[in-house]
Amino acid sequence: KSPLTGYVRFMNERREQLRAKRPEVPFPEITRMLGNEWSKLPPEEKQRYLDEADRDKERYMKELEQY
């Protein structure tokens, strides 16, 4: 499975939280809201997602080498 970027990891995590709080909001609007939230997120909060993405990318590269 391909590695996910930090942005995609953030979107996946927050999308479920936002949909639970506001189920009436259409999917494209949720994506737009989360995109704005990501762009305003402080670098230190973004870093968690970026670090997870880096670890996932390393895992993926190792799997490719073994293939």
Rank of each mutant, 00 (worst) to 15 (best):
K1E: 00
S2W: 02
S2H: 04
S2Q: 05
L4E: 15
L4Q: 12
L4N: 15
T5F: 07
T5A: 12
G6R: 00
Y7C: 09
V8N: 13
V8P: 02
R9K: 08
R9T: 03
R9G: 03
R9M: 09
R9F: 06
F10E: 06
F10G: 05
M11V: 11
M11G: 02
N12V: 06
N12D: 06
E13N: 02
E13I: 10
E13K: 10
R14Q: 07
R14Y: 05
R14E: 04
R14A: 03
R15Q: 12
R15H: 03
R15L: 13
E16S: 07
E16D: 06
E16R: 06
E16P: 08
Q17V: 11
Q17Y: 06
L18H: 02
L18A: 03
L18E: 12
R19C: 11
A20Q: 11
A20T: 03
A20Y: 00
A20R: 11
A20N: 11
K21C: 10
K21D: 14
K21A: 13
K21R: 12
R22T: 14
R22S: 10
R22L: 14
R22Y: 15
P23F: 01
P23V: 07
V25I: 14
V25E: 06
V25W: 01
V25T: 10
V25K: 09
V25Y: 02
P26V: 00
P26G: 07
P26F: 01
P26H: 06
P26K: 09
P26L: 00
F27W: 15
F27C: 15
F27K: 14
F27Y: 14
P28A: 15
P28D: 15
P28R: 14
P28H: 14
E29I: 00
E29F: 01
E29V: 04
E29R: 01
E29Y: 01
E29N: 01
E29M: 05
E29S: 03
I30S: 05
I30L: 12
I30R: 03
T31Y: 06
T31A: 07
T31M: 08
R32F: 01
M33L: 12
L34F: 00
G35C: 03
N36D: 07
N36I: 11
S39Y: 07
L41F: 00
L41K: 04
L41D: 00
P42I: 00
P42G: 06
P42T: 07
P42S: 08
P43A: 12
E44M: 07
E44T: 07
E44L: 07
E45T: 07
E45K: 11
E45Y: 01
K46H: 00
K46E: 02
K46R: 09
K46G: 01
K46T: 01
Q47A: 13
Q47L: 11
Q47M: 06
Q47R: 08
Q47C: 02
R48M: 05
R48N: 04
R48F: 03
R48H: 10
R48A: 09
R48K: 13
Y49N: 01
Y49V: 04
Y49T: 02
L50D: 14
L50F: 11
L50T: 14
D51R: 02
D51G: 08
E52M: 04
A53L: 01
D54M: 12
R55M: 11
R55E: 13
R55P: 11
R55T: 13
R55W: 08
D56N: 06
D56S: 07
K57I: 05
E58Y: 10
E58V: 09
E58C: 05
E58K: 09
E58A: 11
R59L: 08
R59K: 12
M61I: 14
M61N: 14
M61Y: 06
M61V: 13
M61D: 13
K62Y: 06
K62R: 07
K62E: 11
K62M: 09
E63W: 03
E63Y: 03
E63T: 10
E63P: 09
L64G: 15
L64I: 12
L64A: 13
E65C: 07
E65G: 11
Q66E: 14
Q66H: 07
Q66A: 08
Q66M: 11
Q66D: 14
